[in-house]
Amino acid sequence: MSALADLLREWIPEQRWFGSKGRVLSTVDTTPIELCQDPLVELHLVYVGYGDGGADVFIVPLSRHTDRDDQLERVLIGELDEDPRWVYDAMRDREVTPLWLDLFAAGHHHKELRFHLEPGAEVPLGIPGDIVSTEQSNSSLVYGESAILKLFRRLEPGLNPDVEIHDALHTRNNPHVAPLLGFLAIEGEQTNGQEDGTIAMLQTFLPAASDGWSLAAASIRDLYAEGDLHPDEVGGDFASESYRLGEATASVHADLAAVLPTGTLGIDQLADVLAGMNGRLEAAVDVVPALAPYAEGLRARFAELTDLTGPIPVQRVHGDYHLGQVLRTYQGWT
């Protein structure tokens, strides 16, 4: 294991985007892909093996500086014995964040990396990116009021569903979908026995927007603060917004059904789906024991699926869909 891999072995489990909390990292290997030489910026594919079996490939951009930078102290990963010796989290090293936009605008192609720019897309240049602190599983940079870059921290085979869905919806002009500007793919890399994967996507940014989680949390906070009032009497009541969010969700799902495959499930197939849901719940409880008090209620909800009679219509949807992923602008939900 290299010195850099040793640093990452200690650093990765402490990051919010690391989803395997509680698992022991038994092996860590890293493959760098150089993006810039001065300062040195590298995209690392970090291959992690776990003590209980299984493996993941994480995407970790790093910047390296010859001199230690006091302004980057909080994003310092560690020191190496070779120059440039000081290693930082490149997603939080503001000096190097404009590089991503430069590479998209140039349609950069280096070894297995390819920056794809959507036809007619305009990319702002010379703007540093600011990290989005509320994200859990990925990392995003906001560039002024123009664009947002989402880095997918775990490398999965094939085109990321986020990119696939936004690309498919391009022709529908749905007002609840922020236009896709481009995406970054790795081509020819073997991941879980399949080729290719998606590193990041670049989207139009929606300024002056609030994420759904923050709005819902503020609504509950206000409700508790005004204990003698009904929810609809509190200024931040989320009930009406949740209804509008449901309408926006239905609109997007209708367009998805129009541009992506649909199908039906029989009763036997539904049983397989139910078994998979219960299996994932058990695995989640093993990793996060605090979920145990809620497990029985979730199993009961899952069991209600057996009341359905086939054939049951199914369609492609955005799997990673939650309040933290939606934004409320003056025009509505996106």
Rank of each mutant, 00 (worst) to 15 (best):
F183Y: 15
H166W: 08
L99K: 04
D162Q: 11
V142L: 09
A271S: 09
G263E: 06
L80M: 04
L72G: 06
H110I: 06
K21S: 12
P84S: 01
G53Q: 01
I12A: 01
H44M: 04
P157W: 09
R280E: 10
E187W: 11
V163S: 01
L215T: 03
T30E: 15
A250S: 09
Y50D: 06
V75M: 10
V60P: 01
R92F: 03
A5V: 06
R280I: 08
T334E: 04
P61Q: 01
P261N: 11
L99M: 15
I127D: 07
V177C: 09
M91W: 05
S26H: 05
V60M: 02
L76Y: 04
I33N: 05
S139W: 08
S137Y: 13
V142K: 15
L327N: 04
E156C: 11
G227Y: 10
I199Q: 00
V87F: 05
S219C: 10
R221M: 13
M201F: 07
P124S: 07
R68F: 00
T198R: 09
F205L: 09
E226K: 02
R299T: 04
T204A: 14
Q194T: 05
Y47W: 12
L141H: 13
E296H: 05
T66D: 09
Y243W: 07
G49Q: 11
A178G: 05
G297C: 05
H65M: 01
L80C: 01
D232R: 11
A300R: 12
T191K: 03
E79T: 15
G120L: 04
A218E: 08
L103H: 04
E226I: 04
H166P: 01
V285Q: 00
F183Q: 00
P128M: 00
A208C: 10
E247I: 03
S210Y: 14
R74V: 08
T309H: 15
A218D: 14
G22P: 13
E145K: 13
V87T: 11
R23V: 06
P179H: 02
L265G: 07
